[in-house]
Amino acid sequence: MKKPLTNRQAETLQLIKGFIDQKGYAPSVTEVADLLKLKSRSTAHSLVKQLVNKGYLEKTDFEVRTLRVVGQEDSNALSHMKPYVKKTCGYYRRMWSCGKSLRALKNDNM
């Protein structure tokens, strides 16, 4: 059973859900802060971390835009995209791209 949310956490979760539904990808911490009209990114980060700890969100560490609402089906907006892995500074980062942009990125950066 999930722990209950405070009003601010519920507002944050709703804004993240709406952002994902509208844009098809997860917001960054800066975008969460902007949506909540916060001056501090650390406050937005803390709210996201609380939602992850309570089991409402999932996040992959050390990767950007990996927030996922638990129990919400994945958007069809990403169904045509395929992940690829790029070696950067000694570690691998999963990146998303599709079609021509993937080839252009491979040619430019690899």
Score class of each variant (00 low, 15 high):
5 L>W: 07
5 L>H: 04
6 T>H: 12
6 T>M: 14
7 N>D: 08
8 R>P: 00
10 A>L: 15
11 E>T: 07
11 E>A: 09
12 T>R: 04
12 T>E: 07
12 T>Q: 10
12 T>P: 07
13 L>F: 06
14 Q>P: 00
14 Q>H: 05
14 Q>L: 08
16 I>F: 04
16 I>R: 02
17 K>D: 00
18 G>T: 09
18 G>C: 06
18 G>Q: 15
19 F>R: 07
21 D>C: 02
21 D>Q: 14
22 Q>L: 11
23 K>I: 04
24 G>K: 08
24 G>L: 10
25 Y>G: 00
26 A>K: 10
26 A>D: 04
26 A>L: 06
27 P>R: 11
28 S>F: 02
29 V>H: 06
30 T>V: 12
30 T>P: 02
31 E>Y: 02
31 E>R: 06
31 E>I: 09
35 L>K: 11
35 L>M: 15
37 K>H: 12
37 K>M: 03
38 L>G: 04
40 S>F: 09
40 S>L: 10
42 S>C: 02
43 T>Q: 09
43 T>R: 08
43 T>V: 13
43 T>P: 00
44 A>I: 12
45 H>N: 13
47 L>W: 03
49 K>C: 01
50 Q>C: 05
51 L>D: 02
53 N>V: 01
54 K>I: 08
55 G>D: 14
55 G>I: 13
56 Y>G: 03
57 L>W: 01
58 E>C: 03
58 E>L: 11
60 T>Y: 13
64 V>L: 12
64 V>F: 12
64 V>Q: 12
64 V>T: 10
65 R>K: 15
65 R>A: 05
65 R>P: 00
65 R>L: 11
65 R>T: 02
66 T>Y: 08
66 T>R: 12
67 L>F: 09
68 R>G: 02
69 V>Q: 06
69 V>Y: 08
70 V>Q: 05
71 G>Q: 10
71 G>P: 12
72 Q>I: 10
74 D>Q: 07
75 S>N: 13
77 A>P: 00
77 A>W: 15
78 L>S: 11
78 L>I: 14
80 H>I: 05
82 K>I: 13
82 K>A: 07
82 K>W: 03
83 P>W: 08
83 P>Y: 10
86 K>S: 09
86 K>M: 11
87 K>W: 06
87 K>R: 12
